[in-house]
Design a protein around this nucleic acid. Structure first.
Lengths: 187, 187
DNA sequence: GTATAATGGCTAATGTAATTAGCCAGAGAG
DNA sequence: CTCTCTGGCTAATTACATTAGCCATTATAC
């Protein structure tokens, strides 16, 4: 009987499962069970099978994060905007560990799709940096530095890779301030 | 017939395969073929199967990187030592993409083993930071910031996640200088 | 030097998940 | 009312990981 599923519903289910039990807990079998269908039926929605599913989840994640970053920067400028965006990024990675994990797999796919997936958040960063007196090259360095730090920090933190003597939030703020100081030194 | 393999030889083969074709190309089947044996025989060396193999590769990677970082800091102090260590880290991730990938899977294993694996490189960083006039808390922030940035940057770079207008080496040096400036501001 | 134990290979068999092929019922368009 | 498309299904195939149990060679004990 027709259950009436579509890509969006399926992806949201995948996201939920990934966040709750890790991306490796999402198999076509377990996903189908969760949806109340049999695994071969999933090919009617994702003809590329598991690979396509992972790719779509990656894109879904980047698009979602992009939207949240944009929203968090509305009405803010310069340091305030950057801080807000960065906190949004960190929060997303922490709250959506499974989806974030999938987002890192973009290297498994064609460079084109990888770059498309992330170009959104990159352009948000560039837009915010436009308010500073920086050369293009300085902006590139700053965006890359932020991306590198945000990804590495969030990734380690979400895997509980930091000891817990000192609150990680303090470190996050400390590091962001350091990077902001770097920007100010240019101006 | 006895081929006379041991854990070290097998791990080095795994590392080579992972670096050449990605960690996912290492299956018990492909590894056994590469070694000239049949896959069930691998259980004589790694009774835990694929899981144990991955875990050992992770440990192997962190230990190797730790040694290289220590070597690169010999005879250097303060900024020089930090820069040298960081360049070693980046180079390792770039040259051993497969092993580095395995190293990130430490979250899949018990926290104990995860923390043990990385405590070596963390203590190297703390040792270098001892030369600065920093509080313990400032040292923690600095080490975490470095770890976060090094991991994120190396990870993105090794997956070709940065566009290529500006050399990534320039960005790396820029970011490290920014972090060093952060340290100097404390003193 | 021979008996015995441990080592490190092997084949055969099992279980799980992905994937493909091809069937079929129901919904909507003409 | 019929035709077609959609979205389910079962059955069969494949690829691995894993387990069980066999066997030759090596190493050790006496």
């Amino acid at each position: 009987m027709k259950v009436g599923l579509d890509k969006d519903i399926i992806l949201q289910t995948v996201a939920k499962m990934a966040d709750e039990n890790g991306i490796s807990s999402v198999t076509l079998k377990s996903l189908a069970a969760e949806l109340g269908i049999k695994s071969p039926s999933l090919y009617k929605h994702f003809s590329g099978g598991l690979d396509e599913l992972n790719k779509e989840l990656m894109l879904y994640g980047w698009h979602t994060l992009e939207k949240e970053m944009i929203m968090s920067a509305v009405g803010k400028a310069k340091d305030d905007a950057i801080l807000s965006i960065c906190h949004t990024y960190r929060k997303f990675a922490l709250e959506h560990t499974g989806v974030y994990e999938a987002m890192q797999w973009y290297n498994m796919y064609s460079s084109d799709e990888a770059l498309n997936a992330t170009e959104g958040i990159i352009s948000v960063l560039f837009q915010v940096l436009a308010a500073y007196e920086l050369t293009e090259e300085q902006k590139v360095h700053t965006v890359r530095t932020l991306r590198g730090f945000l990804h590495g920090f969030s990734s380690i933190e979400s895997h509980r890779g930091f000891g817990n003597a000192v609150p990680t939030s303090d470190t996050f703020n400390f590091a962001l301030q350091t990077i902001l100081n770097g920007i100010h030194n240019f101006e």
